[in-house]
């Protein structure tokens, strides 16, 4: 099995496209770095404690005014007011008053997880279908290892690739952030639920961002992998998965406004971050445990289909 994964790894990293994707991801980190550097206020421009507190108070006033005037977006204003009051009471300066640190830089880079997800989807979608496209699948399957083993070695390789890219993103962000911004004073993330404000250290918030982001793309990669095993078409596997990735969450949350059943949809559950941040899940009755069970069921369905189709399929290559 290790040899099979070695093989897949070798085939993956002899592809130019793999290196191009890696390079784009690193470029993304460098892009964020340049943006942060050019927009970073110098030390003497940072507001003093009195200044930022005054700023926040002013904002609270404006928000109250807005609430009275229209009543629209009440949730948003109430949350911001509560958070700002909490900061003033507890002496927690907002991001704009602490300046950039390695932690805030890494938190910004968590946005690159979207890019990474698409790359992982591409790898998952091509790792089986490309063998069919080139006809090499026949040479691969007329060997002692069983079809299930071959399929699993490919899946493991996708996961390994995802982990490697994640480590790269995490590592590059950490090293560059530490070099350019220093460790600084970690700012604090606030979570607002049902009128209560809680604080969470940014390092923990970061870990949650990256972990829940990983769950998201592992599920999508599994979906792309299954589609690739079932239809054997690269284009279809990439198109369907990326499309779902882009519109899935939006459509699901729209449906969730009106109905209860969307909570069983994949995309209502892939973003586990919703249980750790202020927004909350799209359907109120959902819990973290519920989402994890739904995800496991989806995962089993995807893998089951992939194995079943790959096992029984007659291997014919046209053209």
């Amino acid at each position: 099995m290790i040899r099979l994964v070695q093989n897949e790894w070798m085939k993956l990293f002899w592809r130019i496209s793999t290196w191009v994707m890696t390079a784009i991801l690193l470029l993304g980190v460098v892009g964020v770095l340049i943006y942060s550097l050019t927009n970073q206020p110098s030390a003497d421009e940072l507001p003093s404690e009195a200044q930022w507190k005054a700023g926040l108070e002013q904002q609270i006033e404006e928000d109250r005014q807005a609430l009275e005037d229209s009543g629209a977006a009440a949730d948003f204003y109430e949350q911001r007011i509560a958070e700002n009051e909490y900061r003033i009471q507890n002496d927690l300066p907002p991001q704009s008053a602490t300046g950039e640190s390695v932690w805030s830089f890494m938190s910004t880079n968590a946005g690159l997880l979207d890019l990474l997800s698409i790359f992982v989807i591409i790898v998952a979608a091509t790792i089986i279908s490309s063998e069919f496209k080139t006809g090499t699948i026949k040479l691969l399957l007329v060997r002692p290892p069983s079809r299930i083993k071959i399929l699993m070695s490919k899946y493991l390789t996708v996961i390994l690739y995802a982990v490697a890219m994640l480590a790269l993103l995490f590592g590059a962000s950490f090293v560059l952030g530490a070099l350019f911004f220093g460790f600084g004073e970690p700012s604090t993330q606030l979570i607002y639920t049902d009128g209560e404000v809680e604080q969470r250290p940014q390092v923990l918030a970061l870990a949650i961002d990256y972990l829940t982001g990983s769950v998201n793309f592992v599920m999508l990669a599994t979906l792309a992998f299954a589609i690739s095993a079932i239809f054997r078409s690269e284009a279809m596997a990439i198109a369907i998965s990326v499309l779902l990735y882009v519109v899935g969450a939006g459509v699901t949350s729209t449906l969730a406004l009106a109905y209860d059943w969307p909570k069983y949809l994949l995309f209502a559950n892939t973003n586990l971050n919703q249980y750790f941040t202020s927004g909350g899940p799209p359907v109120e009755s959902m819990t973290l445990g519920f989402s994890i069970i739904v995800l496991i069921v989806y995962w089993l369905i995807f893998m089951g289909f992939a194995i079943w189709m790959f096992k029984k399929r007659e291997i014919s290559v046209t053209g």
Binding site: R3, Q6, N7, M10, K11, W14, T134, T136, L140, P144
Partner: peptide, 19 residues
């Protein structure tokens, strides 16, 4: 049909690992 993006030797290493 071999792996076009691998060298001749790597192709053989690949299949050797499977056997």
């Amino acid at each position: 049909e071999m792996y076009n993006h691998l060298t001749a030797e790597k192709n053989l290493i690949h299949f050797a690992r499977m056997n």
